[in-house]
Amino acid sequence: PPQTPIRAAMNSIKMLRGDLPSSGDQPSSNLATYFKNCTVDPTQGIQKRLEMLGQVFSQKFGEAVGPHCIVYGRERFTLGVRLYYKVMEAMLESEEKRLSVQNFSKLLNDSTFHMSLLACALEVVMATYEESSFKNRGCSHGEGDQAVRDLCFPWILDVFDLSAFDFYKVIESFIKAEPTLSKDIIKHLETCENLIMEKIAWRTGSPLFELLKREHEAGATEQAEPPAS
């Protein structure tokens, strides 16, 4: 039977929590092996970054929704970290098959990669909760709709001071690596992609302009792609 929007949202949250058990708070033994195989073990760097970003996220969440809701921000961050580790492991397994390598030192020591991946995981968590939590838990202080709007993409980019151009890079690989994503969430990520492609990636300060300038100075030798592709 068709579900009410609230029931559908609650089921999505239940499924998200079910797919991300508490054992995922730390890297799995498989993921830890990828870390150890790196020329430079990224484990400590990843841990420190997560601690720092967790504090930033919770603080910004509280500022957006209300100080009494910081605990919900921490809850969402915890789920985001579990999803981040899960997708990271799946991505590395896929890359290992594709490239026949086990040492991903450069990628796993790239701070931008980790921030982009974590931001994407948190965006999935936020989108899953979007329809139900604030309106049902009384966190709104009379401003429920505004709070939900404030947390919508690209809010997470501002929280992490992450460029849209870098965030965009992880989206497709994220969708490929996580087959349990619902149709609604995939649609949401696609909307984020379109927003970035059409607007946000072209804002002042985007790294895209520097890259385009470098390409232009290097001298384009290939023909431009036809509009169809």
């Binding site: 594709r98 990628l107 149709k183």
Partner: peptide, 21 residues
Amino acid sequence: SHDYHFGLEEHEGISELFDCD
């Protein structure tokens, strides 16, 4: 995910996107 347009080709992946090839 059948409605999502996958743009990366077979020789492309997260490693290339972050200049780790």
